[in-house]
Every structure is written in structure tokens, then in C-alpha cells.
Amino acid sequence: MICTVYIVDDDPRILAATGDLLEDCGHKVVTFEDGREMLARLTAGERPDVLVSDIIMPHINGADLKDAALAIVPDLPILFMSAEIGNTDPRRLEGHMLLEKPFTCAALTDAVEGLFNAPRLHS
């Protein structure tokens, strides 16, 4: 099933590769190098089916991005991807899927499609 995926990652190579892979699977993809731009789109009323976000980023980290995004879209499914959790308290990521970098193409597509097809808590 095709869904709209917002991807946020400050590394342009990972952002492009992740976006290309999901587009090749037929999904509509919108990419952002800065979470603040993605939040502006949510505030303007846009609604992705799934958010895929890096955790360690400048300006706004993945945990803070999650909090801000869920304040706008409470039932937004979120997939975190990271090579390291870093200074982020893992409890702030609880309840959301985490995909460790590097990941396989199959792991990414399975995770996104699983989130898209999962029942929503606040529909």
C-alpha cells in the first residue's frame, strides 16, 4: 500500500538514499534536512502517513521533533533511525520504532509499511 512518508535527516546522503528507496517502493516521499521545516509543514496542515527521523541532528533532535510533531498530529506513526542514541534519553523514544543504521532496504520498507498499516491510537 502506498503512503506519504516525511523523512528528516541532516545527512544529505542518507536522506537521499532513504528517500530513493522508499520512492522505488512506490511511496510518496518528502525529505527535510531540518526538522523545523517539517514542523512548519505540519503546522500548515499537511499530514504524512509516517514520519522517519534521525535522532542526532542539529537545531532540533529526534526526541524533541517527536514531541513537537505529536503535539500537532497526535497519532502520527514515527520511525527513528540512528547509528547511535547519543545523549538522548531512550525513554523519550519509547513507544516508537527504532531502526539502527546501517539498516537493510528490507528492514526500512518493512518498518515503514508496518507503521502505516498499524492501527492508530487516536484516529
Rank of each mutant, 00 (worst) to 15 (best):
M1L: 05
L115E: 05
A69T: 07
P77W: 15
R36N: 08
V73I: 05
A83V: 13
R41D: 10
E46V: 02
A63I: 14
Y6L: 02
E84H: 13
L79N: 04
L121W: 11
I2K: 06
G35A: 05
P102D: 07
I78R: 00
N61D: 15
H27R: 01
L15G: 01
T109G: 01
D24R: 09
V112S: 02
T43C: 13
K66D: 12
G95A: 05
D11I: 07
D9S: 00
R41W: 14
N87I: 14
K28H: 11
E84L: 13
V8Q: 04
C105G: 06
G35P: 12
D110Y: 11
V52C: 04
M1Q: 08
D54G: 00
I85S: 10
T88L: 05
I85L: 14
I78Q: 01
P58V: 12
A68C: 15
L121R: 12
L76R: 03
G62D: 06
P58H: 09
G26R: 04
E46G: 00
A111L: 07
I7G: 00
D49N: 08
P12M: 12
K101L: 03
R13Q: 08
M57G: 00
R36A: 13
N61E: 13
K28Y: 10
R41E: 14
T104L: 03
G114A: 02
N117V: 10
E100L: 11
I2T: 14
E46R: 14
L108T: 06
D64M: 12
L65S: 02
D67Q: 08
G35E: 09
A17D: 10
F116V: 04
N61H: 07
P58M: 07
R120M: 01
D67W: 11
T88H: 05
I72A: 02
S53Y: 11
D54H: 08
L21Q: 03
A107V: 12
G45I: 06
H27I: 01
L79V: 08
L98N: 03
S123A: 15
D64R: 10
L51D: 03
E113V: 02
C105Y: 10
I78F: 00
N61Q: 09
P90S: 15
K66S: 06
V73E: 10
F116W: 15
D64P: 02
P48T: 08
I60N: 09
F32D: 05
P90D: 13
N117W: 09
L22A: 00
E94Q: 15
D10L: 12
G26L: 01
L93D: 03
I60G: 02
F32R: 01
A106T: 14
H27W: 03
P48F: 05
